[in-house]
């Protein structure tokens, strides 16, 4: 206490004892390690912050990749005219009948799609992989890179792509890109 002690306080023996007792309780200096520990905690926080910042960048990159994929799929869905779908189905049927279709695994024995039947949305990748892959207007590399981040999405095309990539291990990127949107290689 400095210059503003209560002037009415009497300086008796008991007052002195009270002051002394209080000082004995609370006037120990801070531990010598206090400053070092504070600085260590600040350094630790700085390191964690830097690490978190790096993690955020990774998350951001992943989110951007996913967003690009979703945007591409949505754009493809909007731009793809109904006539294109019919042409595509017709093309595939013709390819199957002529034996020029890309065939992998079970697709070798798969019957040609029925032209009258609507294009299945959640199509079985084993039975109809060429159709779904052929109609996927998304760069395959992005699809494969982003598979892990698409689990919660319910966009049919993405679900198909995921099924193809996950369930048909022998199906390679090269196979998938043999029949891109808009025609064959």
């Amino acid at each position: 206490m400095t210059d503003e002690h209560d002037p009415e306080t009497t300086r008796s023996q008991i007052d002195g004892a009270v002051d002394e007792a209080v000082r004995r309780v609370v006037t120990d200096p801070a531990p010598a390690t206090l400053r070092a520990r504070v600085m260590a905690r600040l350094a630790e926080r700085r390191d964690r912050s830097a690490a978190a910042s790096g993690g955020l960048s990774w998350s951001l990159r992943s989110a951007v990749a996913t967003a690009v994929l979703v945007l591409a799929v949505a754009t493809w869905g909007l731009l793809r005219a109904p006539g294109d779908q019919e042409d595509s189905i017709a093309t595939q049927r013709a390819e199957a009948e002529s034996g020029t279709a890309v065939a992998t695994g079970a697709d070798v024995a798969a019957p040609a799609p029925d032209a009258a039947a609507p294009l299945p949305v959640d199509i079985d990748p084993v039975a109809s992989a060429p159709v779904t892959v052929a109609e996927l207007a998304v760069p395959d590399a992005i699809v494969l890179d982003s598979i892990g981040g698409l689990e919660a999405l319910e966009i049919p095309e993405i679900r198909i792509a995921r099924n193809v990539a996950l369930d048909m291990a022998p199906l390679t990127i090269e196979t998938m890109t043999l029949t891109p949107l808009g025609g064959r290689h």
Partner: peptide, 13 residues
């Protein structure tokens, strides 16, 4: 009040 007033080098304010 007592401990903070006497035990620290602070004034009443």
């Amino acid at each position: 009040a007592l401990v903070m007033t006497i035990g620290t080098d602070s004034n009443y304010r």
